[in-house]
């Protein structure tokens, strides 16, 4: 009965979302070193999950330690909601000259880019919720991907004697600690690249101490 109901509901989804869901049926994880990861970031009109909107999505993907520049994602989204307050952070104005797509189109491109790969974001919960809200607004389900939060991961990489008095780490703090060049901070793609670098540098520190395993990486 329940199954039937679920099945029925699923049918209303557009085909691209169903294809996305299908990807999660086969569960197989290979070696960390040969797995594709996607680091992404969103720029939004604010921090309210219900009122605010995503203005742009940036993502880079990598396998091992190489990031291909021509395989990055940079989306700008048409929104009616506009908040002049945050313009000074991300620099995206309402009628800019950038080529913009609507929300559904953006989701479609984003999902086909991320596939079922592990997603990496800094303070991932914010970006995940923003994306989920946007997907729900467009009649879709949530993101199914596994997430790694670079803030949490960094904390794990610190020596045990400091973990207790670690404060909340901003992306800027991590850049300073890990010596990541800050280029294009506060553009979605720039932050995605920085997040990828932070991730790579952090796991190289973790890997030195122990043979890195999936369940350690994905636990929070």
């Amino acid at each position: 009965m329940l199954e039937k109901w679920l099945h029925k509901k699923k049918k209303h989804y557009p085909s691209f979302y169903l294809e996305y869901l299908d990807l999660f049926k086969k569960k197989k994880r290979g070696r960390i070193q040969s797995t594709r990861f996607v680091a992404f970031d969103t720029e939004t009109t604010g921090f309210n999950f219900d009122k605010d909107r995503v203005l742009s999505i940036g993502a880079v993907s990598f396998i091992g330690k190489s990031i291909h520049v021509n395989n990055s994602l940079e989306l700008y989204i048409k929104q009616d909601i506009f908040n002049p307050e945050t313009v000074k952070i991300h620099g995206l104005i309402k009628h800019g000259a950038l080529n913009k797509v609507n929300e559904l189109e953006a989701i479609k491109i984003f999902l086909s880019y991320i596939k079922n790969d592990v997603l990496i974001a800094h303070h991932a919960n914010f970006d995940r919720t923003m994306m989920n809200k946007m997907m729900q607004r467009n009649g879709l389900g949530k993101l199914k991907n596994k997430f790694i939060d670079t803030g949490v991961l960094f904390k794990k990489s610190k020596h045990i004697i400091y973990q207790e008095n670690l404060k909340h780490h901003s992306l800027d703090d991590l850049c300073k600690e890990l010596n990541v060049p800050k280029v294009d901070r506060h553009t979605a793609t720039g932050d995605a690249l920085i997040t990828a670098m932070v991730f790579l540098k952090t796991i190289s520190r973790l890997d030195k101490r122990k043979n890195l395993k999936w369940n350690y990486l994905l636990s929070s």
Partner: peptide
């Protein structure tokens, strides 16, 4: 499509 990373590499 705009590619900011490529611009920064350039």
């Amino acid at each position: 499509m705009k590619n900011s990373i490529a611009e920064r590499v350039r």
